[in-house]
Simulated assay, not measured.
Amino acid sequence: MNPFHRAEQAVLGAVFLDPGQLERVSPWLRPEHFYRPAHQALYASALALRERGHPGSTAAVGAVPVSWVADVVTEAGTRTRGVTASYAHQLVAACPRPEHAVVYGRMVLEGAIHRTVAEHAVRLHQAALADTVRGGTEETLLRADALATVLADLARRWGADPRPVPPPAKGEPAPRATAVVDGDEHSDEEFLLACLTARPDQLNAVVGWLRPGDFVDSGHQQLYRALGALHHRGEPVDQLTVLWEVQRRGALTSGDLDAERVLAVCDPLAVAGSAEHFGEQVLGAALVRTAAESARQIRALAAVAALPAGRLIGHALHALGPLDKIRQRWHTARTGPIPEKAPSTARSSPGRAEAARARSRPRRTSTPAPAAAPVPAVPSRTSRRSPS
């Protein structure tokens, strides 16, 4: 049997045997964290009866009335089907120790974190694929915000700080997923390079937020680097000088480019337009590709059942790092730099502190060091001596 499924049974059995355990787990464990609908209904019913002041919700261990279990089952029957009194007795039998309800609740929450992170990663990946076909970024940005919000909420419930944590380095890098690229992306990149070759002064408008890695074609990356280098050194920019710079950088021998392709892409007569417009198209496509890659990494992390919940959240936030960086440049390209956020002054909630205490060992309290005695002031040599 799945350990998470057994943990859900144990939590509910502990609530039936000792209703006071609800006070310990309810601040951070919610009904939606349970996987089975029957378990969600039973836990939500127990919380509802406690809110309405049911006498059994405050009964001591060993003095719990029979009506407590019966009323919880009856209430759960109004929320979902298949909840019977005999199943409630199975839940009681599945609980090894009612006083360990917090640990069982942590197991349930850890399973919910894995499922929730995987679900939102799939949604982000689907939004990125849809925006690739549609040619937009709105749905991708919405799903990315939803995933970041969910990670922050899960970290608070788990009792951890929502900070990025890089995964441990491995011997071989994980293979990158093949990006879904259509012909429009290649066309936008070629139009942009042609515009910059025809009017090199437009580089000043895009170099602040467009990077070579934003181009999906490796040959276009080399051409953008060559254009930027010529412009930075103040040298003339045309088809021939770009070809010369590309050759100096070794791109012609690496197989990414050849002379005919360089001359064809950098033809100033091929297109006339705004480099900023085509640059935004290239950057938007790069944002969507980055979101798809981040979602793929997060989904792979969530599939590892042996990964603790705190590490999963930290690794997932780290995987969103490249998306956050390119998103800042996307905002700069469209509306200007993002204003800096004020430092957060929010205090941790009692539920987060309780969750952290439940999964941590008490630390030894070290004896505070005695305060240092104030150092007496030394009189200055230049001070005037008294007449005496």
Rank of each mutant, 00 (worst) to 15 (best):
Q9L: 08
A10F: 07
A10T: 07
V11T: 06
L12G: 08
L12W: 01
A14N: 04
A14Y: 04
A14G: 09
V15G: 12
V15P: 08
F16S: 02
F16D: 02
L17M: 14
D18K: 13
D18T: 07
P19L: 05
P19H: 11
Q21C: 13
R24P: 01
R24D: 08
R24C: 07
R24M: 04
R24F: 05
V25D: 03
P27M: 06
W28I: 00
W28C: 07
W28V: 03
L29Y: 01
Y35P: 07
Y35N: 14
A38C: 09
H39G: 12
A41K: 08
L42Q: 09
A44I: 00
A44Y: 03
S45I: 01
L47F: 11
L47I: 06
A48C: 09
A48S: 14
A48P: 12
L49V: 04
P55M: 05
P55D: 06
P55R: 07
G56T: 02
S57L: 03
T58D: 09
A59M: 11
A59G: 14
A60M: 06
A60R: 11
V61M: 09
V64T: 08
V64C: 11
V64W: 02
P65C: 12
V66R: 14
V66K: 11
S67W: 07
S67A: 15
V69S: 11
D71V: 02
D71Q: 06
D71H: 09
V73N: 02
V73M: 02
V73L: 01
T74Q: 12
E75P: 08
A76V: 02
A76S: 08
G77S: 05
G77E: 03
G77F: 06
T78G: 13
R79N: 05
T80G: 10
R81W: 04
V83R: 05
V83N: 08
T84V: 10
T84L: 10
A85D: 01
A85M: 04
S86C: 05
Y87V: 04
A88V: 03
H89D: 06
L91S: 11
A93P: 00
A94G: 11
A94P: 04
P96E: 03
R97D: 09
P98Y: 13
P98E: 07
A101P: 05
A101M: 00
V102M: 10
V103K: 13
V103M: 13
V103L: 15
Y104K: 05
Y104N: 08
Y104E: 06
R106S: 14
R106F: 14
E110W: 07
G111M: 02
G111Q: 06
A112F: 03
A112Y: 03
A112E: 00
I113L: 15
H114P: 10
H114C: 13
H114E: 13
H114I: 06
R115L: 12
V117R: 10
A118T: 00
E119R: 15
H120K: 13
A121W: 06
A121G: 15
A121N: 09
A121D: 09
V122Q: 13
